[in-house]
Write a protein that binds this DNA or RNA. Sequence first.
DNA 1: CTAACAAGTTATAGACGTATAACTAATGAT
DNA 2: ATCATTAGTTATACGTCTATAACTTGTTAG
Lengths: 197, 197
Amino acid sequence: MSVRKPAKDRKLEIVQTALTLAFETGPERVTTGMIAKSLGLTQPAIYKHFPRKDDLWLAIESTLRAQIKANILAASDPSLTPIARLRLLVMGHLNLVYKTPALPEIMVARNPRGMRTGIQISMTDFFNALTGTVEEAQDNGFFRGNTPAKDLAALIFGVIQSLVLRMLVNRDPNILLADGERLLDLQLSAFARQGDE
Amino acid sequence: MSVRKPAKDRKLEIVQTALTLAFETGPERVTTGMIAKSLGLTQPAIYKHFPRKDDLWLAIESTLRAQIKANILAASDPSLTPIARLRLLVMGHLNLVYKTPALPEIMVARNPRGMRTGIQISMTDFFNALTGTVEEAQDNGFFRGNTPAKDLAALIFGVIQSLVLRMLVNRDPNILLADGERLLDLQLSAFARQGDE
DNA sequence: CTAACAAGTTATAGACGTATAACTAATGAT
DNA sequence: ATCATTAGTTATACGTCTATAACTTGTTAG
């Protein structure tokens, strides 16, 4: 028998391992056997902590949703300028994906019965926060033109998605942070009032 | 027994059905049984046309790669302005995703052994074509500033990815065409030399 | 110290998916 | 008209994954 650990710790380990494997092989391919093996346990051991595999995915989901929510909250500090909050929102999310590169794939994954996952709801929340913050920035006269806030938000969101796809293709989360800030600044300055570069 | 068809037609049907199912339930979840059922056939019938399931995915892959390539080619017509070609490239790709909404998920999917699919290579080609066309547009003085072409291409690519994610979340390919042109114009005008709005 | 509980084990049932073998009937070439 | 080929069938083997049952041993409360 391997090292015995308290359920609380082990549950966290299982979630973490599942996330790591999800990035490596794709969320759908992660089996209870793989997780167990990574942890030096036998496959049924997982079921001591999550009675059904779906429960594990629910735990993962709520972990990720909490992090997305925390990022939105951190970027809603009213003492900051709208632009500073926009930056926090985007960079915070990129950091989240950097730490949990399986997130994008889990987001678009279907649960065992092919249904939409709750993470998609959190992403809608994120997008709404982005749109709201863009609106405030517009009210503060930061952006030129009178582009709909939703469209501007969509383009800023595109900065994230562009990087995420590149990350998924070359399997390297580092580009998220390396290029993220530069591209975000570029996108923001393109719409900034005074901004010529 | 159901209607008997020539292999050539049936193969196309199988590929098409697999693509439809891939969008509905996710590429990984598509089974030979599901495809057969959709076509009113029995499961082993699929194997008369594709000796292994992997062969079916290879066929799908080469179909999609051909379409991506065709779009790149269509947008390389030297008689057009760089900006017109940029538009063709982006809108052509959005049209492709509109017609085959399973494409984005297939693109980031792993094949049975967890390897990178050839579609990702085609997407790199697409990105390179985008970057090259942006460079030409810069040489023609269309864009202001001296932003690296790759960064500009990344932001334009973001327009696509932003829409694709929204499509994946609300399962509605219509937004690709409905919002695509507007967002692309917005993005291009934000970097256009004279452009204020 | 001991009993109850918790975290692990081995063994295995059952569902599902890929793939093959052996058979059957429609189609097309001679 | 005949016959080989081809597109389909039924039946089934095999592998993999989820899940459960029954047993074992480490941990902790009293």
